[in-house]
Design a binder for these strands. Structure first.
Lengths: 201, 201
DNA sequence: AGCATCCTGAAACGGTCGTTTCAAGATAGC
DNA sequence: GCTATCTTGAAACGACCGTTTCAGGATGCT
């Protein structure tokens, strides 16, 4: 091998990911990426191809490093409703405070920007949507098995509804919504799924 | 008056609105607007100012002509849950079929693009969010008065949750989600709010 | 008809876009 | 240390960006 790269491709991709995540694909220029990562156009094009492929790689990295782990944590947690509650709490914390506050979810952002027109992006969005919905359904099934769920609750449709609720949380967090409001909204929704106490009448 | 405009400003603004709605502010160029509206740069700039102000005017038109009327229809409908159901059905129809299928909601789209960074845009988003939430709360209050609502339902928090659900619907519609899936998701959520039938046990 | 006023069309502004090119620099194998 | 091969830096590509300018055309008023 005559020469090796003088930089760490994944570290550079992470910087690009952050840029796309925060600002959207349309707003981020190649020049902005070179400035952020420190590498120059030649290395960037040689490593990732053009802008479209760079954005796709960044989106895939986001799924791999952030979205998917959250899914698997939820799906693998057998506690039922507490697991769902905890997943939402973690989400809201991530979105409203810390280094990524106000950035929303890179996947949710992709829906709204022109990014979703790209068939590869859309496939990614659909795939992750299915994954998250299934993970949520797993958690709800565990809740049912534990007797936490009210009789009337339809697991599949409720899982889909909770995922859409999570999308809404991600959106509102981008406009700086108060974490407390979001928490209360989610808590109320989840409380409505619980086995009701014996009726007084 | 020496001369008058040779075009209808609001008709032109509607074309621009459609462009921004479908493609997002970052993706739409002034050239694309002139091509779509037929008027040239001079008239455009003289009438609306720059791109930022044009986008803002288009967004305001969207609120005035589309979002606000939907809000008022919901708030003014005293039937309770059926009104909420009908609002969601109309939303899903709009998003999944007809001339605007796959465009999502221009306001929801604005959250994700860089558009929400603009303080004027953010103010608009927050204002409409409050308005929609209040309209939803009005409808839920009517439902409670009619005895349609289960005891445990917190009107304010549920109103917020339903609005976030609507945002989720708008998002998913942009990726071509099936109307039937969305309808089922919403119907299940609303059914969970209804006064439960007497228990069998 | 003449004038003042506004609108329209087209060209041009500097700047940035994504992408390509190519010579100079760096490295592994011999 | 030589060479083959890859990476790097910098310049340049044409195209398009949002915006401005200005001469010429159209209009309402006197």
């Amino acid at each position: 091998m005559p020469d090796i790269k003088h930089f760490d491709p994944d570290a550079a991709l992470e910087r690009a990911e952050h840029l796309f995540w925060r600002l959207g694909a349309a707003t981020v220029s190649i020049q902005a990426v070179t400035a952020e990562t420190g590498l120059n156009r030649s290395s960037l094009y040689a490593t990732f191809g053009g802008k479209r492929q760079l954005y796709l790689a960044a989106l895939r990295r986001y799924v791999r490093e952030r979205a998917r782990p959250a899914c698997e944590r939820l799906a693998g947690d057998g506690r039922g409703l507490p697991a769902v509650q905890e997943a939402f709490d973690a989400l809201i914390d991530q979105r409203c405070s810390g280094a990524y506050a106000g950035w929303g979810c890179m996947l949710v952002n992709a829906y709204a920007g022109g990014e979703a027109e790209d068939p590869d992006v859309r496939a990614l969005l659909d795939d992750h949507h299915r994954r998250l919905r299934d993970a949520m359904a797993d958690a709800l099934a565990a809740a049912r098995a534990a007797g936490q769920l009210a009789r009337h609750v339809d697991i599949d449709a409720t899982a889909e509804a909770l995922v859409l609720l999570a999308y809404g949380v991600n959106l509102r967090s981008r406009a700086g919504a108060a974490a407390e409001t979001l928490r209360r909204t989610v808590a109320t929704t989840l409380a409505a799924l619980e086995t009701p106490p014996p009726r007084a009448d």
